[in-house]
Design a protein around this nucleic acid. Structure first.
Lengths: 298, 298
DNA sequence: GCGAAGCCATGCAGAACTGTATAGCGGATC
DNA sequence: GATCCGCTATACAGTTCTGCATGGCTTCGC
């Protein structure tokens, strides 16, 4: 037997959850505030439990509502993906593709690739979602992901790009002023740029190269901020070798500090027959390969 | 900006897709046929493309509709999971838990475990989904899965049960009549029971023990059918050792033919705080462990 | 301490949607 | 070849739902 809870109620429910009030949710959905209120009331009646505590400042979710949130978000993601898929039907490469990548890749590497892609396909739209968390694809938050770990889910199509090397770099002017470190011990005299709150990957990496959080004189969680600091000569820090080459940064202690990120492009297999996704997938693969190849020739 | 396609339309769309006609979809949804027709028309208008070709025998989906189906199903799964989660809110162990497992496990092993669980928690409802495909959990088609492969997805909570051994077995009466094979070559004189269309696992297993499809005199894709054939003395076939012990089946060529299935119980991490899922998870783990331990003592 | 802004709840008129009934068509069955 | 069954499409009446306007409340800023 099919349940008789209207899906429309879930949408209002989620909007209230994210916006924090009936009025704000109504604005976001483009409907009237009393309507949202009635939807929430109807959902509470249908589920047989209260979901929010009303107040004059808005609605605050009860635990019950919070626990339902991930599922409502899954519905929204699927609905959004469905619209993207529908908008791209028909012949030719057209419609919207959502691409997710890390901040560094998304800012430093992807833009020229995407620009070229757009040049070839004028009806293609790209949405770039930069995030370091990577639980996106199966939730349909994005169509294609550039990831630094081998994907292990069966339902995904993956193509390996190769290993992006990461090393310690500094600006030439900085090294001319402070000298070039020749050993790990020399680093103590330098301004080290590193993480503040380490992510899982960074923790593992830091262990493998034996650098502790305390070693860093300049700390920033944002990889982009770290890169900007290195680039303007603030000190010595980690960045991807291909980017460093392009920027004319000088690598130091290459033998001692060497990490590499296995890079993959991943797509949900449901999108295999989507022209826009295939084209984007291939363009990203080719562009990233060229980006990596730059190291060998540069 | 939020899209303004009503989620309710997707539900009617999916019902038409699965039922094959407006009338049948209307019956399944408990609404009137013209309403479903209007929903589909509204969705086609909203998406700007036709989705079905109308005929007097029903609606047949166009390619565009078929390609959107997985996403609509994702929405339905999430909606169903949301209702399950909501129904189980509150103190105590209550509500519905959907458990998925292979056919053999679901029929031969789980029933007594579930019966005991129900004895302890009268307000608990269990839905058993038997299927050999295992892409269920992340799509929220089930809450808990019993699987034969190590789960590799981060968002899942997994507990390893152990290895279930699989071996060649026959009924005692069969062996008394046809003799007990002492070598792999002896098997040629026996009625071998095996697969028809091999699944991925079976292919790998068959390779490892060097048995080809042609070797089987009785073929059935259903593991349950194979088990039933062995059980009634029709021939020699593969089945799980703990089940064979319980049934009094005799293992043959134990040294030569030996496989084992690594067994896991898996749950989405979102359900960690759900009492009903935790209890079911633990009961399944304990029951399956006991089932395996039977081998040692039996 | 006072006004402005934001919020929720309610009454009411209008719009939108739903359900019932029916006509028309095609395929299956005897 | 006639009948029955199931399907879609349309007309129409009723109900439901939505949006607007308003009242009452709290919080924030001056």
């Amino acid at each position: 037997m099919a349940s008789h809870i209207e899906w429309e109620l879930y949408r209002s429910f989620l909007a209230v959850l994210t916006e924090g009030s009936l009025s704000a949710a109504a604005r976001a959905l483009g409907i009237a505030q009393p309507t949202v209120g009635r939807h929430v009331a109807a959902l509470e009646r249908a589920l047989g439990m209260p979901l929010f505590t009303r107040s004059q400042t808005g609605l605050s979710p009860l635990e019950s509502a919070s626990s339902l949130r991930p599922l409502a978000e899954a519905m929204r993601s699927a609905a959004a993906a469905l619209e993207r898929a529908a908008a791209s039907q028909g012949a030719g490469v057209r419609g919207v593709v959502r691409v997710t990548a890390s901040e560094v890749i998304g800012v430093e590497v992807l833009p020229p690739i995407i620009a070229g892609l757009r040049e070839a396909h004028r009806d293609l739209r790209i949405e770039l979602v930069l995030s370091n968390r990577m639980q996106d694809l199966l939730q349909r938050e994005a169509d294609i992901a550039v990831r630094m770990v081998r994907p292990d889910q069966k339902a995904l199509i993956a193509r390996r790009i190769g290993r992006i090397e990461v090393g310690l770099h500094a600006r030439r002017q900085y090294l001319e002023r402070h000298g070039t470190p020749e050993s790990a011990a020399d680093l103590e005299a330098h301004t080290l740029i590193g993480f503040d709150q380490p992510s899982a990957f960074v923790r593992a990496a830091a262990r493998s190269i034996s650098l502790q959080r305390e070693a860093f004189a300049l700390r920033a969680d944002s990889d982009l901020a770290q890169l900007a600091l290195i680039r303007c000569g603030a000190g010595v820090g980690f960045c991807q070798v291909p980017i460093a080459r392009r920027e004319g940064l000088v690598r130091v202690l290459a033998r001692r500090f060497r990490l590499s990120l296995d890079t993959w492009i991943v797509m949900h297999e449901d999108l295999r027959n989507s022209a826009r996704c295939r084209v984007t997938f291939d363009a990203l693969a080719e562009g990233l390969r060229a980006h990596l190849a730059q190291v060998a020739s540069g």
